[in-house]
Amino acid sequence: MNLVLIAMILALLIPIYGAWQDDDIWQKMLAFASIATKTSVMILVVSVLRDDWMIGVVGVIILSVGNAGLMLLAQLIKRMNDS
């Protein structure tokens, strides 16, 4: 199962590289969404690996709340570009 996690870390490097290279703010937001979701799924995988319900609950909360934060930030940036 360690190999699965290491493969997920390598997949996490792809959006990090994307956020580094691209100067467009929406590309960066896209990379942020990708990373936020990937990290929460990784937390869930770790919680299943260790059979730790506490980490699992935290992973679920981060997975749902991260999307809410992303929506707030996207709304602010969109309004800034409109005005």
């Binding site: 937001m29 936020a36 929460s40 990784m42 919680s47």
Partner: peptide, 17 residues
């Protein structure tokens, strides 16, 4: 600010792990 969000996501992953 967007990169700060990425940093926060990764930091949460590190703390949870």
């Amino acid at each position: 600010l967007v990169i700060r969000g990425i940093l926060g996501a990764i930091a949460a992953l590190v703390y949870a792990v």
